[in-house]
Design a protein around this nucleic acid. Structure first.
Lengths: 226, 226
DNA sequence: GAGTAAATGTCGGCTGGATGACCAAAACCG
DNA sequence: CGGTTTTGGTCATCCAGCCGACATTTACTC
């Protein structure tokens, strides 16, 4: 990938766009670009000395393998999101990122390099700081949900959230392009496949939504009422 | 409190000690010191425009009131820890900090001021960033524990952790000064008072520990074996 | 030290939702 | 197109641990 393309990518990035063009050009030199098709694995937690990735295009799943060998979907990330090793502590288990949309583009730096840039660029530092705060909040939220809400509620809130991010509104329904299996959804809301399946069917019976393997159609307002 | 004392406090702080003495002096001017005795409330999430606090001496509990009016202990903090509103999102519920050790000293700045300092001080920014990463990791860990471990294991790990932080080692036991009720412990590990009580008694029967209302005595190595 | 409030102890009933097992329907693939 | 894999559907079983209720002990207050 040529420098101009890199430049353009970074220039439009929500974190990087505070940098001057000279600084951007410098970053371009240390950046590594990567593209992947659906199903391809983008990164492994252990294979490289810690790198940070930013997702330029597409959607990815962050998956972790637990002690028993089960795959747990930890997160779904979209354009602009950061992933990889931000923290020094490297005791993370097997973790990898896999493309779920047809095409994915992302770029990465070595954490050390990124730190050097931060050190020389206070505005970026501040922004990075805020981004982390945001992340912290999100995790805290998830944690609270897990403690106080039952599976049904967690599923409904998950759907609401998803719909607000990626849903296409039509007359009286919201359409979601579904790239997740019930299993995936289950691990995102900390439940089991079977429970998710039967909740989906329950919601379908109640007329709240309809679904196939590739699409979820939410009747407008139906979710809000729950 | 006079400037010299402030200066000294900040000078020894794990975050602030990257600052030059001129910078430190500047921070002293915008800092607010506060002391509290056991049981006194130090801060409310809603009463001031967002401030960051650093704990200088003592131990505090961060407590949140949930929708049903229950008090949930979210965290126990010690010397050097930061608390308050770091994030812009201010939808936090009622949350407050209460002193659990006899004397507590902490200092605070307005978030805006802190941001200004960060903006002018990359080394501090980097350190702050790392600290947040650490926090993120910790929360992630907690989250994972909640999903994969049962209450018994969570309690044991909580005790191990506590012992390693604050335990006094003697010949063949570790002594913990206990300032938490079973209720507090329960909410820290996301369980109920009754369950904690009976687990404590179970562990006592098994000879793993002994306890009164003010002390927990852990037989050395006994916990490790579990 | 009496009286009250807070913390601990104990128990039985109850249930959300995990688990396992098995089948049906799609999707994938040579 | 037929065979294989992946995903979704359904059910019966089971249990950790929550919940309510109540007794007992310890601490706090005046």
């Amino acid at each position: 990938m040529n420098l101009e393309t890199k430049y353009w990518h970074l220039h439009n990035h929500k974190l990087m766009n505070v940098l001057s063009s000279a600084e951007l050009k410098e970053i371009c030199l240390i950046t590594n670009f990567k593209t992947a098709k659906k199903g391809e694995i983008i990164y492994f937690s252990h294979d490289e000395s810690s790198r940070v990735y930013t997702l330029k295009r597409g959607t990815i799943k962050i998956v972790e393998i637990d002690a028993k060998g089960n795959e747990i979907v930890k997160d779904i990330l979209q354009e602009g999101d950061l992933f990889g090793q931000f923290t020094l502590t490297d005791q993370t288990l097997d973790e990898y990122a896999i493309a779920v949309s047809d095409y994915v583009t992302c770029c990465s730096f070595r954490m050390d390099d990124f730190e050097k840039i931060i050190e020389r660029n206070p505005a970026l530092a501040l922004r990075y700081t805020k981004w982390m705060g945001f992340r912290l909040k999100r995790l805290e939220n998830r944690y609270a949900n897990l403690v106080f809400k039952d599976v049904r509620t967690r599923l409904i809130e998950f759907l609401k959230d998803w719909a607000s991010k990626e849903g296409t509104n039509t007359q009286d329904e919201i359409i979601l392009k579904n790239y997740l299996t019930h299993q995936d959804i289950a691990s995102l809301i900390c439940s089991t496949r079977q429970t998710v399946t039967s909740l989906f069917n329950d919601l379908k019976e109640k007329g709240v939504l309809d679904y196939t393997r590739t699409e979820i159609i939410i009747k407008n307002n139906a979710l809000l009422a729950l």
